[in-house]
């Protein structure tokens, strides 16, 4: 294992644990209303939206079809694994059908 991989993994572990412990330590001081509270609430969705947007946009028609199928499966099953598996199957079939 390279040193930079080790540093990356330990860094990821440290920030993640700091966040988990930080919530408990700050529990009584975290603002429940106002700008900061609202910002914290919006971070996860915004991050995920920025993760998927370029991927969906730069993908071909097979990826676009599969993204739509993924959305449909999620709203029917509400299950993370079923959605992931369905999305993978959808892109596999779409690529076969479109010869991509």
């Amino acid at each position: 294992m390279s040193l930079e991989a080790l540093i990356t993994i330990l860094g990821m572990a440290a920030v993640t644990y700091a966040i988990r412990a930080g919530g408990l330590l700050l529990a009584n001081r975290l603002p429940t209303t106002g700008f900061v509270a609202s910002w914290l609430k919006h971070v996860p969705g915004a991050v995920l939206a920025s993760l998927v947007a370029p991927a969906v946009l730069t993908g071909g028609p097979a990826e676009a079809i599969a993204a739509a199928a993924t959305a449909l499966i999620y709203f029917v099953t509400r299950n993370l694994f079923a959605t992931m598996a369905g999305g993978v199957l959808a892109v596999y079939l779409a690529r076969l059908a479109l010869g991509g």
Partner: peptide
């Protein structure tokens, strides 16, 4: 096998769950 799409599908599912 379409496994590269697992990322996008996972992030989409997590995103919808946050609606």
């Amino acid at each position: 096998y379409g496994l590269d799409f697992a990322f996008t599908a996972t992030f989409l599912a997590l995103l919808f769950g946050m609606w």
